[in-house]
């Protein structure tokens, strides 16, 4: 059903989905997803609102487990391990798959404590280790210069863009293999957007990044691969329409629906 244009092979993949389906209660939200997500590259998920791209993203770190009545069918793997296999601990999975949300959501704690949160969960107690992690993570998130002398300030006192970078630093502090970003730039100012995009480019060589975005320009600008999702009929499940290298998808889309979407004819 889905069209593939020089999509990643199984060997290149960090994450794979095979005939993946998802239900919210009785509502069949996603159907028949087959895709390999390339290791240490940036992949963007695009599509109109309600096309299930965020839902699929939240399946990768099993955040949907927190919603009652959700159910999956089919297979999804991370580095060859079945994510949904019997007995897999979603808590452990989420330590390897970090996530950035649309709305910056720092904890109502100090900047330092926000970044130290993850390492503390993993049992890091030494003050010097924590200091190192906090400093390096904030530097990696390009926030260190702005906050280095006010680490005890409440994270919520920062501007929206700074909050989002704090959230990124918070994730980097646990060095996940995969970084999921759910429209990370839609609630922050343009200057911060470019800072976040630069950061993604810096991280990509060592981290598998998946970003859900509404901005076609952003997808074209930063991602190596692009996946287009669509729910054609309201009430019916959404699915993957076209997937492959970003250049190919944007310059020569095969499916007419993909072309309509990226040229702005709907959505």
């Amino acid at each position: 059903m889905s069209v593939y244009q020089s999509a990643p092979t199984l060997e290149q993949a960090a994450i794979t989905a095979k005939d993946f389906n998802f239900w919210y209660g009785d509502f069949h939200a996603l159907t028949g997803l087959d895709l390999n997500i390339a290791k240490n590259a940036i992949t963007s998920f695009i599509g109109p609102s309600g096309c299930g791209k965020s839902t699929f993203l939240r399946c990768i770190n099993r955040m949907n487990d927190l919603i009652e009545g959700t159910r999956v069918e089919g297979a999804m793997t991370l580095d060859g391990n079945d994510i949904y296999a019997e007995g897999v601990d979603p808590v452990d999975l989420r330590r390897r798959v970090g996530m950035i949300f649309q709305q910056p959501n720092p904890f109502p704690k100090s900047i330092y404590e926000n970044v130290a949160f993850g390492p503390r969960l993993q049992g890091v107690t030494s003050k010097s280790d924590l200091d190192d992690i906090v400093e390096e993570s904030l530097k990696r998130a390009n926030l260190w210069k702005e906050v280095s002398n006010q680490l005890n300030k409440d994270g919520l006192a920062l501007s929206g863009g700074q909050q989002q970078r704090l959230c990124i630093a918070r994730v980097l502090a646990v060095q996940p293999d995969v970084l999921l970003m759910d429209e990370p730039c839609s609630a922050i100012d343009p200057t911060s957007v470019s800072k976040v995009e630069d950061l993604m480019a810096e991280l990509a060589p060592e981290m598998t990044i998946i970003i859900v975005t509404h901005s076609m320009q952003q997808a074209a600008r930063i991602s190596d691969y692009t996946a287009f999702f669509l729910q054609e009929v309201a009430g019916e499940p959404a699915t993957l329409i076209e997937y492959g290298q970003t250049d190919a998808i944007f310059t020569s889309p095969v499916d007419s629906r993909t072309e309509d979407y990226i040229t702005g004819r709907f959505g």
Partner: peptide
């Protein structure tokens, strides 16, 4: 915390540093 200049962060060394510090954590699964 050192006040080192952070205009150019060496990505790999930074990553190594964090990983090393993290590895000191006790496994408390």
């Amino acid at each position: 915390m050192s006040d080192s200049v952070d205009t150019t962060v060496d990505a790999t060394s930074s990553r190594e540093l964090i990983k090393r510090a993290l590895s000191h954590g006790k496994k408390g699964r």
